[in-house]
């Protein structure tokens, strides 16, 4: 069980959260019509073996979307922040 220290609710097991993958990919503006940018945003992944910025939502708690920095090799969690207000 990963323990994610939700900045709102405190440390909780990861199964209270919904995962949503890589948070380092920048979402194009909603009006952006550039195919390449959308293709890369939706499909291309760095997939690092090591530190990974990723989205988790505390669905069974405050429902905030968080950006968690986690090591994908040893599962150490390096930081947890609200997605709102955190620069991409």
């Amino acid at each position: 069980m990963l323990q994610i220290k939700c900045p709102c609710c405190g440390p909780r097991d990861h199964d209270e959260f919904r995962y949503a993958g890589d948070a380092s990919v920048g979402r194009p503006a909603h009006t952006d019509a550039d195919f390449e940018r959308w293709y890369r945003y939706v499909f291309v992944r760095e997939n690092p073996a090591g530190a990974h910025r990723e989205y988790w939502q505390h669905v069974m708690g405050c429902r905030q979307w968080l950006i968690v920095e986690r090591n994908t090799v040893n599962h150490t969690i390096l930081s947890v922040n609200f997605s709102r207000g955190t620069p991409a």
Partner: peptide, 13 residues
């Protein structure tokens, strides 16, 4: 397991 991982082991959940 539900999140990116390179560890050849899984979680208890």
């Amino acid at each position: 397991d539900g999140y990116n991982s390179y560890a050849q082991r899984g979680n208890l959940g």
